[in-house]
Design a binder for these strands. Structure first.
Length: 390
DNA sequence: GGTGCCGGGTA
DNA sequence: TACCCGGCACC
């Protein structure tokens, strides 16, 4: 409950906005009741004090207006992954000062915060935001305790800073996302807007290519092909993460998704925030949205021991159970890639060599056409004989 | 030409 | 998914 991702917008003004938007998005955050439910969950340090109850609509209006001003004044300033203290130590431009003033006035709005601005408006010393640098060293940091919005099990969180788009293209309420952990430094453009603006404001080129694991009961969605390959390699194939040890097989087990970020964010914004204790991220309302929330972490305890041919796995793997499993090692399924996909199509799977004809007599030869009912199913279907294997 | 079976269609 | 078949490669 009441948890939003720790947006990593590191400009102090943005942090204020984050607070404000958080209060909008968090059903518990503009309470007429009790203390802040999130006071200790690590959101940029101390939470702002409670304020008088205000309607969401009113707050929304104020915020929207304020953000418009903010963006107008502050278009040159970007939400860059500069640590908070560095940001403060630098010379703030006039835009920043004005933006800060706007935000300050915003934050002091009786509708928004019933608290003196000094409490959470930026301060030169950054004392209020002492904890900010911990997460500000990287916009990609998931150091929040307010819920892991990434799609991976906790792994290497030392993802380097990710350049951010300019604020001018940065829609209010859309904060720097938490990049997917699998996204390595080789993917500097991996920007994923996991949370969107509450106000409908369309963006251009909002399609984001994601990569979805096709492994049975996995469905993991990552933003980078390399990350997905690593995922498949390590988790499903039980191999080492070293890409040099890859034979390209993992290419078969993921597909690309064109995710409309607007749809995505709109969908997410309507979600109830997840509990900080929940390790399950919210469902990813991509093009395959009707599907239930994807299990993003495989429940297989010892994947390293899993044989590549062991279930669960995608169909087509080397696993012949019955007489009907005549297809043996077929080429794994590969859903069609959208022609609009900006990424080049993955390499074609190697052509399956036609199996050499064995010397063994098959059902047709053994039983003859007149006893076709005695053939194995595969032979009857003109498939590779399963009774008389070579 | 007979055989095996891949790829694709249909219900 | 089960079933069927066109068509191709191999013998």
């Amino acid at each position: 409950m009441c948890v939003l991702p720790s947006w990593s917008c590191l400009a102090e003004e943005c942090q204020v906005i984050c607070w404000l938007w958080r209060s909008l998005l968090d059903p518990c955050w503009i309470p007429a009741h009790g203390p802040a439910p999130l006071g200790s969950e690590g959101w940029l340090g101390e939470p702002p004090p409670r304020q008088d109850p205000a309607s969401r609509e009113a707050v929304l209006r104020v915020l929207d207006a304020g953000l418009e001003q903010y963006l107008a004044l502050h278009s040159a300033m970007q939400c860059i992954p500069v640590p908070w203290h560095r940001k403060l130590s630098g010379k703030a431009g006039i835009d920043e000062v004005m933006a800060a003033a706007v935000l300050t006035s915003l934050s002091t709005s009786p509708l928004v915060l019933g608290h003196p601005p000094a409490t959470h408006a930026p301060e030169p010393g950054g004392e209020i935001w002492k904890e900010a640098p911990a997460m500000s060293s990287s916009c990609s940091s998931s150091s929040n305790t307010s819920g892991d919005w990434s799609w991976d099990p906790p792994s290497d969180r030392s993802t380097p800073s990710t350049p951010s788009p300019p604020l001018s293209s940065h829609v209010p309420g859309t904060f720097l996302p938490t990049p997917l952990p699998d996204e390595g430094p080789d993917e500097p453009n991996g920007t994923h807007f996991i949370f969107g603006e509450p106000i409908p404001r369309k963006r251009k080129n909002s399609t984001k290519v994601m990569f979805k694991c096709l492994w049975k009961s996995c469905g993991k969605v990552l933003s980078s092909s390399s990350g997905m390959q690593k995922h498949i390699r390590t988790v499903h194939l039980g191999r080492k993460a070293d890409p040099e040890q890859s034979d390209g097989e993992e290419d078969f087990y993921y597909t690309e998704l064109d995710v409309d970020v607007d749809v995505l964010t709109d969908g997410l914004s309507s979600l109830t925030p997840v509990s900080p204790t929940s390790s399950v991220p919210p469902a990813f309302p991509g093009p395959e949205a009707p599907a239930p929330p994807l299990p993003l972490a495989l429940p297989i305890p010892d994947l390293a021991l899993a044989s590549p041919c062991s279930p669960p796995g995608p169909p087509g793997r080397c696993h012949v159970h019955t007489d009907h499993a005549y297809q043996g090692c077929r080429t794994p399924p590969r859903p069609p890639v959208s022609p609009s996909s900006p990424t080049p199509p993955p390499p074609k799977p190697p052509a399956v060599p036609r199996r050499p004809r064995g010397d063994a007599k098959k059902c047709r030869k053994v039983y003859g056409m007149e006893h076709r009912e005695m053939w194995c199913t595969a032979c009857r279907w003109k498939k590779a004989c399963q009774r008389f294997l070579d």
